[in-house]
Structure formats: structure tokens, C-alpha cells
């Protein structure tokens, strides 16, 4: 779609896009190209020597047990976050769509965790489950469950999943609620007249009609779990416990390999792989949006 009426000026449009384009080139495109180019080099930590090594950084990465473990950790983490937060949000949204009195109040009470920083959400959950001081881990200890995120990798993973999902519930809730409210009431009424109860109506009518929203949210949640949860991991577990770290997701590994271990070539190669993942997810998301128009 194009505008029929336009203004004419030789230089003004360039001036108008200049700030956006300058920042894009300097802080996005250039560093991305740098990452791609340095993924082909091996460099010592002091930057004194630099050898072109073709795809060796990538080969090493895929032969590295720690990297493969990190990929697996990321998969478990992101699927866990998506499943938990979407499942809980769908239940809340279905209920909120059903009640008439108080629906707005529930909405207000459920949406605000979106505003909490991931790193802050991490601290909140860490405090409840911290060994020795956490009231929840203490209570669990009382009933015989030894919950220790500092020593047990599964405990740590479960906690970061719950913390990350907690923050994302509001977002999923809003989209599910909007999706539910856009389903024509006449369909539901027709099913009710035919004698279908709420459960049957949900699985045979509501859930299939909701599937575009569900698919869209799945992509968004995976992107969130991959790229926006650095603060949660950093504040709760620091990638640990153990080695390779039980919660060392890919984004966290890029950071720790690049900034702490100063393994530049490997970090750059990891960045390039992450870029490929974001590009794939973005393409999937945009292709889906085009389809949604017809729905």
C-alpha cells in the first residue's frame, strides 16, 4: 500500500531517517558484521594475534560437550517456560472470559507482573527459595523435601522456569483473553443449545479457534525465554550449579565465554548461531501474521 499524496523534497527525507539509520548502522549492523567476521578468526585474549581459521570455531563448538549441554538446557528451559506460562494463562483467561462481575478487576490484578524487570523477578523468587533464608525452601524442608538450588541442578532449573513463567503470565493472559473474546458468541451458544457443556465446548470449539493465538504466543514465549531471561538466570543461579552449568542457557554462555572467559572467537561463533535462531523465529512469526489476516 502506498500513499497517493506525497511531499516533494530532495534532502528532507534523508534528514528525517538519518538518526534511525545512523544508530542502526553503528550499533546494530556494524557489530553484527563484526561478530560474523570474528567468528572466522581465533584471537588470543589480549588481541595480540589473530588467525583466520575458517569454520573451526563452529566445528569446535559443535564438538564441545558444554555447548551441546547448553543447547539442551535452553531447549528444556524455553519449552518449560512456554508450557507453564501459557498453560496457566489460558486457564486464567478462560475463567476471566466466563465471569462477568469483576472481570476488569481480575485483569488489572493479573497484568502488572509484565512491568517487573526479569532481574528483579529473579531476586524475588531467589529470596523465597534461597538455601538457609528462603521461607519456601524452609517450609519444604519441614515436610521433608530438600530443595537446594545451589547444589541440585534440577531444583535450580525448576526455579528459573517458574520465575520466568511468572513474569510472562500477564502477557499470555492478555492475548488469550483477547483471542477468547473475539470468538463469535453464536458458535458457543449453538453448541450449548445442542447440549455441549463448558468442557466439551472448550475442546471442540474454543481451543481450535484459539490456535492462531496459541501458535503466535508459542513463538513469542520461546523468543522471550531465549533472549529476555538473562537477568533471571544471572540473579538466581549465575548459570550454575555444577559444570557444565545446569541453567547455563545459550545467551548466558555467550556472555560468560565472551566477557569472563574472554574466548572471543567462540563467543562470536555463538553469537552467529543465536542470530540464526532469532532470524528463524522472526521469519516464522511474520509468516504467521500474514496468515492471521485471513483467519
Amino acid at each position: 500500500m502506498e500513499k497517493r499524496v506525497v511531499f516533494r523534497s530532495a534532502s528532507l527525507p534523508y534528514l528525517l531517517v538519518l538518526p534511525q539509520i545512523a544508530i542502526t548502522l553503528i550499533f546494530f549492523i556494524w557489530p553484527a558484521l563484526q561478530a560474523i567476521s570474528s567468528s572466522f578468526y581465533r584471537e588470543d585474549a589480549f588481541g595480540l594475534s589473530r588467525d583466520f581459521v575458517w569454520l573451526q570455531n563452529f566445528e569446535r563448538l559443535f564438538a564441545d560437550a558444554a555447548y551441546l549441554a547448553s543447547m539442551q538446557t535452553t531447549a528444556v528451559f524455553s519449552l518449560g517456560v512456554a508450557a507453564l506460562s501459557m498453560g496457566v494463562a489460558l486457564v486464567f483467561a478462560t475463567m476471566a472470559d466466563h465471569v462477568i462481575r469483576g472481570a476488569t478487576a481480575y485483569k488489572t490484578l493479573l497484568i502488572w507482573p509484565y512491568a517487573v524487570a526479569p532481574a528483579v523477578a529473579g531476586v524475588l523468587w531467589l529470596f523465597m527459595f534461597a538455601p538457609t533464608v528462603g521461607i519456601v525452601s524452609f517450609a519444604l524442608g519441614q515436610i521433608g523435601i530438600d530443595w537446594n538450588i545451589r547444589t541440585d541442578g534440577d531444583d535450580a532449573m525448576l526455579l528459573v522456569i517458574v520465575a520466568a513463567a511468572w513474569k510472562q503470565i500477564s502477557y499470555n493472559f492478555l492475548f488469550f483473553l483477547a483471542g477468547l473474546q473475539s470468538i463469535p458468541k453464536s458458535l458457543i451458544e449453538a453448541a450449548a443449545i445442542d447440549g455441549a457443556g463448558p468442557g466439551k465446548r472448550f475442546w471442540t470449539i474454543v481451543f481450535p479457534l484459539l490456535s492462531p493465538t496459541t501458535f503466535f504466543l508459542l513463538v513469542i514465549n520461546v523468543v522471550y525465554a531465549f533472549f529476555d531471561t538473562f537477568g533471571i538466570i544471572h540473579s538466581i543461579t549465575d548459570g550454575g550449579p555444577g559444570s557444565p552449568g545446569a541453567t547455563n542457557i545459550l545467551v548466558f554462555k555467550v556472555f560468560s565465554d565472551g566477557f569472563i572467559a574472554l574466548n572471543l572467537g567462540s563467543s562470536a561463533a555463538q553469537s552467529v548461531i543465536l542470530m540464526a535462531i532469532v532470524i528463524t523465529l522472526t521469519v516464522v512469526q511474520f509468516r504467521y501474521i500474514e496468515k492471521k489476516v485471513h483467519y
Partner: peptide
Amino acid sequence: LIFITLMLPVEVRILP
């Protein structure tokens, strides 16, 4: 060019 920035969150180009 502006669209591409969507695909380049800070997390994937930290060091450079």
C-alpha cells in the same frame, strides 16, 4: 534496514 534490527537484540551481538 530498520526491519533487520528486530533480528539483532543486544544479546546476539554483545561483544562487538
